[in-house]
Amino acid sequence: MKKNLLGILIALCLASIAPAAMAQSESVIKLGYAKCAHCTPMSLTPQYAKGVQIDAVGFNTGTDALTALVSKNIDVAQVTYLHYAIALDKGFDVVAISGQVNGGSAMLVGNDLSIVPNDWASLKKVIADYKAGGKPFRVAASRGNAQDIHMRGAFAKQGIDINKDVQFVNIPNPSDHLQALRRGEIELICTVEPFATQILQAKAAKMFGLPYDQAAGKLTNLILTRSDVVKDKPKQLEETVRAVVKVDEFVAADKGALIDVISKITGLDKAIATGAVENLDPDPKMYRASALAIAAMMRDLKYINSDVSAAVEKNMDYRFLEAATGKPKSELGY
């Protein structure tokens, strides 16, 4: 009888624990972000979250975060508008729910090149000289990231054919960009902050300009989830977006805090982080018209194969951003 009573008590305890454990699990959002300057504030979202437990995980690149999202290893991913278009082109289930931080791109050229900052004519002349001399003018980026597309779009607008006029070099990890320049393996690179500032402060290259004169402008980061998460965890997503908005407000008002988090996550010196913040723009809005222009540009550049315009518009879900900010989508980039 004692054994039966003990068994009943254990069963009752387990029954009471199980729903609590399940509720705790359901209240967790696994969030992935890349380790670049404008991405690092995502590491602060857990401390700004209420009503949801955010498990924030850093990835080397936005592509890695997107892979984790579509393979259902995380619930939310900080990626870019470019990743969004690529994911839709591949038929992946992604839903855009918030912006985050824009900017962060810079084009740098070798110190010995007679190229004037922001002077495309001088750049095109050097490219033409290399071509006439039978030497490749090598340009680099991390293929598929925002900086790569920013560079390609800016080149196309200036009449530079990246397939014929220059030789593209893919350097996947932005932390390797500095050494590639030091070894003389490339003439120009479009890289991401804080690595752009690191390269400039190390005098491994000089600034050419910011590649924002193209369809993407300076738009960079976008927060994505999946439709199953939207269905199963709507309240948790709302609180996650609210945390993103709060973090954006915090780092926009306190550059010192942004410098600290960049330095902490990337491991780079605060002097580098201080230079990087000048090229960053915290902004949680989602820009629908620009997203459509980016998708069209990516198709023109043959980065995607299909017209994803309808999917880009359909899969931008403003309800969480509206709830988090108390503003209608007409004031949030729609």
Results as ranks from 00 to 15, higher is better:
D283P: 04
V244K: 00
V245P: 08
E238N: 14
F92T: 03
I115R: 13
M207L: 11
G58H: 08
A37D: 14
T63I: 08
Y318V: 04
I304E: 06
G62E: 04
I29P: 09
Y318N: 06
K285Q: 14
V277R: 09
V247P: 12
R319D: 07
I162S: 07
G217I: 09
P234E: 13
V169A: 03
E193R: 00
L222Q: 10
A276R: 03
L200S: 10
K327W: 07
C39F: 11
L44S: 13
T80W: 01
K329G: 13
K327L: 06
N305M: 04
G159L: 05
S330E: 14
I171V: 13
D161P: 01
Y334I: 05
T63A: 13
H150K: 12
I272P: 03
S16M: 08
A121G: 02
G104Q: 13
I29L: 03
D112E: 12
G58F: 00
Y48D: 11
N170V: 02
K125R: 15
V76Q: 07
A65C: 08
A324T: 05
K302V: 01
Y81E: 11
V95A: 09
G144V: 00
L66W: 00
D75A: 04
I265L: 00
F137D: 00
I304P: 09
G256E: 13
K35G: 11
Y81P: 04
Q53W: 04
I29E: 01
V230E: 15
L268D: 12
L113A: 06
V70P: 01
G256P: 01
K302H: 12
G326S: 05
L222F: 06
A273E: 11
G256L: 10
T220M: 10
K231V: 02
Y318F: 14
Q53R: 12
L210P: 02
D317V: 04
F208Q: 03
F320N: 10
L6E: 15
N173A: 09
V109M: 04
I8N: 13
N118Q: 14
N163S: 12
A324C: 05
S263L: 01
S175I: 09
M297L: 03
F137K: 12
N145H: 15
K125D: 06
N4L: 13
K206P: 15
Y81T: 10
G7R: 05
K206N: 09
L292F: 09
V28E: 09
D55H: 10
I199K: 07
L12P: 15
N163F: 11
G153K: 02
Q201T: 08
T266D: 12
G209R: 00
E249T: 10
A295V: 02
S142Y: 12
I115S: 07
P194T: 15
G104T: 14
K235C: 05
Q53K: 15
D176P: 02
A77I: 03
N173T: 08
A20Y: 14
I86S: 10
K203L: 05
D307W: 06
S142D: 08
Q47S: 14
A11K: 07
A295S: 12
L123H: 14
W120F: 13
F155A: 01
G51T: 03
K218W: 11
A216M: 05
Q47C: 04
I86C: 00
G153S: 05
I97M: 07
H83A: 07
S25K: 15
D254L: 02
A141S: 14
N173E: 11
E238D: 13
A289S: 15
D283E: 05
I149G: 04
